[in-house]
Amino acid sequence: MTAINLAKDGLWKNNPALVQLLGLCPLLATSNSFATSLGLGLTTLAVLTLSNFTISLVRGLLDEETRLPVQILVIATFVTLADLSLQYWFFDMHQRIGLFVALIVTNCTLLGRAEAFASKNPIISSTFDGLMMGTGFLLVLLLMGTIREVAGNGTLFTNLHLLTGTPDMSIQLADSGFLLLALPPGAFLTLGCLIACKNVIDGALR
C-alpha cells in the first residue's frame, strides 16, 4: 500500500465516520460545538496513531488466541494516558468531554484498524494508516461541530479558549439558531446529510 492510497482511504474512500460508520457514539455526542469536536477529534487521532504503532510493533509476538485482548489492552492503555494528559493540561476541557474520552476505547475504528491493518502491516505504514484514519475522523467531527454549532446555536468557537489557552474566541453569528441541530437528533440528521453529500460527490466523479 502506498502512502497516497493510505491517505485516500482514511480521508475519503474508506473514511471511518462517513463510510465505515464506526465510532458514532462519540461522533454524535461531542459534535455539538467546534471546540468539543476538536478536543475529542485530536484525542482520538493521537490514540489511534499510537495504538496502531504499538500493535504493529508487537504483532510478531501475538498469537491468534490472545491477539484481540492484547489489542484492546493497548488501546485502553493509550486512552487512559490521553485521559490523564487532558486532565493534566486541559482540565476545563476535560470537564466537558471527559465522559467521551473514556468511550474512545469502545470506538470500533480503533479496534478495526488494529485488527484489519496494524496487526498485519509494518510499523511505518501502520502508523501512517492510524494518522490518516484519525485525520479523516477528526475532519468529519470538525465539519459536524461547525455545522451544528453555527446552525443550532448561532455561535462558533465557544469554549475554544479552553483548548488554546488564549482569550475567549467565540463569535456570535446570530441571536439563536435552529435548535434541533444542536440537540441529539440533529447529530443524526447532520451525519446523514454529510453521508448523502459524499455519495452524491462520489456518484458525480464516477
Binding site: 508487537v58 509476538l61 501475538l62 498469537d63 490472545t66 485482548p69 492484547v70 489492552l73 493497548v74 485502553a76 492503555t77 487512559t80 494516558l81 490523564l84 494528559s85 486532565q87 493534566y88
Partner: peptide, 20 residues
C-alpha cells in the same frame, strides 16, 4: 507474552498516574 505486555502497560499507567 500477553502477561508481560499487560505488566508493561500497567507499569506505564502507574508511572504516568504518579507524575500527573
Amino acid at each position: 507474552k500477553p502477561t508481560v505486555l499487560a505488566l508493561t502497560c500497567a507499569f506505564l499507567l502507574a508511572f504516568t498516574h504518579q507524575i500527573t
